[in-house]
């Protein structure tokens, strides 16, 4: 489903991604772990099309389609969804309006019929249950005054509504207590399907106890330095990131020679 080949990206002239290669197939859940500043969030933002990041080299294919030439809204319509690490507050726009606009924009792009208010309401009620969210939150401005947990749940709700083919969860666990984490992870798990791929970006192994990945990759210094199964996450938890950091520094040195 997703092919990332030799992806390089800069922000403000600094190279953050330095040749990322990753293949994700439909139905798979991949976790990307790494120390702070390794480029995890940059990778997530680049895939979603944030123009703050400049792609200098490489390609990204989604079902054979060059993702990098698409605007963020087209990527969303093609099935890419990013659950933000820091969901943005939009004062003055209610959650339900925002969600319906988003869904109908995507449906328009795909040539599907738009949902009217009644059908939308029916569908949203169903999806709210998935993340145990109160529908009153939808009558408030998007994310404004939401707690950390409410914001993250709102992200998963949006994912449930837009039904992406590729969902990227960027540090969805950060700032959540264990109860909120369980609810969010539970919502994500229910959205797992053979047609859907997920990339779970996280610093801590904790989240992966609840969202169990098929593959774990370690990103250090803008490159994936190690890949493995879910046991790799446990190994990382035990040995710490310095273990892979040292290893990658040695490899770079060897490469330089």
């Amino acid at each position: 489903m997703l092919e990332i080949r030799n992806l390089h990206a800069n922000v403000d002239g600094h190279e953050i991604l330095r040749g990322v290669n990753l293949t994700v197939k439909a139905g798979e859940v991949h976790s990307i772990m790494g120390p702070n500043g390794s480029g995890k969030s940059t990778l997530a933002q680049v895939l979603a099309g944030n123009e703050t990041y400049e792609v200098t080299e490489g390609e990204v294919l989604l079902n054979g389609r060059n993702l990098l030439e698409l605007a963020p809204e087209a990527r969303a319509a093609e099935g890419v969804f990013l659950a933000f690490q820091y969901p943005v507050e939009i004062p003055g726009i209610t959650g339900s309006y925002f969600l319906r606009q988003a869904l109908n924009s995507v449906r328009r792009y795909r040539g599907e019929e738009e949902l009217d208010a009644v059908d939308f309401l029916k569908m949203i009620r169903e999806r709210l249950k998935l993340v145990q969210m109160d529908d009153r939150l939808l009558n408030r401005s998007v994310n404004e005054g939401f707690s950390g947990g409410e914001k993250k749940r709102n992200e998963i709700l949006q994912m449930a509504v837009l039904e992406p083919r590729l969902a990227i969860l960027d540090e969805t666990d950060s700032g959540l207590d264990i109860d909120a984490l369980r609810i969010v992870a539970d919502g994500v798990n229910r959205l797992r399907s053979p047609e859907r791929a997920m990339i779970v970006v996280t610093h801590y192994q904790r989240l992966l106890n609840y969202i169990v990945p098929d593959f774990v990759h370690v990103l250090v210094n803008g490159r994936i330095v190690r890949s493995g199964g879910k046991e790799l996450a446990l190994e990382l938890e035990e040995k710490g990131y310095t273990w892979v950091e040292k290893e990658s520094a040695r490899a770079e040195l060897a490469g330089a020679r």
């Binding site: 809204e73 990527r75 943005v88 606009q101």
Partner: peptide, 14 residues
């Protein structure tokens, strides 16, 4: 810009 990107990343055209 962050609000723009958030909306666009949900499929809403620019």
């Amino acid at each position: 810009e962050s609000e723009m990107f958030y909306l666009r990343s949900r499929g809403i055209p620019e």
